[in-house]
Design a protein around this nucleic acid. Sequence first.
DNA 1: CCAGCAGCCTGAAAGC
DNA 2: TGCTTTCAGGCTGCTG
Length: 285
Amino acid sequence: MPELPEVETIRRQLDPLVTGAVIVAADSHWSDKFTPALDAVGATITGINRRGKYLLFQLDDDGDDESDDGYDDGYELVAHLGMTGSFHLEPGSGSDPSCADHGKHTRAVWAFDDGRHLVFDDTRRFGRLRVVPTGVYNDIATLHHMGPEPLDGEFTGASLHKAIVGKSRSIKTQLLSQRPVAGVGNIYADEALFLAGIDPRARRVGRERCDRLAETVKQVLAAGIDNGGTTLRDYVNAEGDIGRNQHSLLVYGRGGEPCTLCAEPLSTVVIDARTTTFCKNCQNR
DNA sequence: CCAGCAGCCTGAAAGC
DNA sequence: TGCTTTCAGGCTGCTG
């Protein structure tokens, strides 16, 4: 389940390898979640950015701006990995890409002018692809309303508090909404709430606790990146390797095990259909 | 506008 | 040649 650290790990690996490549052909799974892959044909990849859990492949549409459509800044291939998405490159695969020639769960393939293929696999098909004018996210609701990047300085206890004050949903639900802060998923939400001493079911979190939570969100995401992401089931980076951060998790997936702070058994509850692990003793509502 | 929830997906694991 | 049920969950789109 790729969250910000996993997506950032992939971005860092892929960016130097695909920058400058020209997409000469593409193929995709029939679902309209993936057919937008074909819209990138003809473009040159000028780099990869990331916003929250979304990868943003920057596309230069070859200088053909005669249409004067107001989108001189080019386009972006927006990719969300969903639960099980992954990217990798295959060398020298030719200019006639076909998903069927790759893995059983390959959902999109882009052929480059040098013969390499960029391959997107996604077993459960929770991922999505779109090509949009750069920065125009009106049709991608979560991206359009995305909160600040957690590691770039804009995200603070004050901004977190401002984003959640007056809302009645649990703090964990709000973190997962991507609106108070970008890129936090189930694993890192549980970890950050544990370190901040906040019960994930809490519906009122004051300013001081927001200060703590903002710090622990940054802490767990930065550690996740340093460790190359968390692999519990499916996640692999662009080189096919698993992450190492699963060895650093303090609560996620450890229901029933002793809390590392007080040794009481960790509790498991379901919040919004997501398994949630926390310590009733160390985390307060 | 917000809160809540069904639906999308497949394979691994558990249950019988 | 085991079948069935449960579980994992990010996001979309609908309802109230």
